[in-house]
Design a binder for these strands. Structure first.
Length: 298
DNA sequence: CAAGTGCCTTTATC
DNA sequence: AGATAAAGGCACT
């Protein structure tokens, strides 16, 4: 199957799948392999052609958010040279529409971990608790649904490398099952309301909630502030804060709740209704930039 | 190769 | 309210 991308619908598949918003994609040769819901997917991009196996075009179109109007989004978030440079570099990075449950679990696990370790944990969970799924000669595992994880023993979750996060996942899975928690309903709630509900789950703080809102609930105004975004904000946008605030926040690793709220509100006010896109472009740009500095110094 | 640092933070406790 | 510490373990230098 193929989807033709014209100039009005840019896509950078590599940036989209490797920028750290989703953790279960792997690239082998030209092809990306992943599993979305219960659909194992093989996909590649050749210039303006998107080629894939095992899914309908509508499904791929939706997952990749090809209907997000990037022209309009760039016009709104392109407030300064920092974002504009990032847009120039990889225009076509898109926010995926992930499954909310998988996304919630992913970011509960992601706290205080690096991306390779997060991938490892999620793969362990899928291998241990997910259903087998085949595509060609390859075996994939679905991401385990709430029931599967709610049945899991705490020690088996720990074996997946979750550490102290295991008990948060254990408790969250139970609450989602018992309450029949409806993520689809959350998509219809406004940002603040949906955020409040997510914050009730153990292991979910302000940052994790913002990630789930942005990456799976369609709240493009969400502006997650992790260590990178904190550094970026203090480095490029210090004049939006008091000198004292910048000094205090720059010195420590993670912000307090009120400091988080200040940076989060800045992002949403300054970048507007698509602040989440600005966040992702800045995040990816800064990380690539640092990686290239490392490589060139070797 | 060992040891140190950092990691898309949250929670408990003072 | 606000600061501080503790919580796996893996990856990278």
């Amino acid at each position: 199957m193929k989807i033709h991308l014209d100039a009005s619908c840019p896509l950078d598949l590599d940036a989209t799948l490797c920028c750290g918003q989703a953790f279960r994609w792997n690239k082998k040769d030209e092809w990306w392999f992943g599993i979305v819901g219960d659909t194992a997917l093989k996909i590649r991009q050749l210039d303006d052609e998107l080629e894939f196996e095992n899914a309908e075009p509508e499904f791929v179109h939706g997952y990749l958010s090809l209907d997000d109007d990037l022209e309009r989004i760039f016009a709104q978030i392109g407030k300064d040279e920092h974002v504009k440079n990032a847009i120039r570099e990889f225009a076509g990075l898109r926010i995926l529409r992930q499954d909310p449950w998988e996304c919630l679990v992913s970011y509960i696990c992601a706290t205080y971990k690096n991306i390779p370790a997060i991938k490892q944990m999620l793969n362990n969970l899928a291998r241990k608790f997910g259903e087998k799924n085949f595509l060609g000669n390859e075996t994939f595992y679905d991401f385990p649904n709430p029931e599967k994880l709610a049945e899991a023993a705490l020690k088996d979750l720990k074996k997946c490398g979750l550490g102290y996060r295991a008990k948060y996942l254990y408790e969250t899975a139970r609450r989602v099952c018992e309450g029949g928690f409806d993520f689809e309903r959350l998509k219809k709630e406004p940002y603040e309301r949906a955020k409040e509900e997510l914050l009730c789950f153990p292991g979910v703080g302000l940052k994790v909630a913002d990630c789930v809102l942005l990456f799976s609930l369609g709240k493009l105004e969400a502006f997650p502030v992790d260590v990178w975004i904190k550094r970026i904000t203090m480095k490029y946008y210090p004049n939006h804060f008091s000198e004292d605030f910048v000094r205090r926040v720059s010195d420590k690793r993670s912000p307090s709740g009120s400091e988080y709220r200040k940076m989060n509100e800045f992002g949403r006010r300054y970048f507007g209704e698509y602040a989440g896109y600005a966040q992702e472009y800045l995040y990816h740009y800064e990380r690539l930039d640092q990686r290239s500095r490392c490589e060139s110094s070797q």
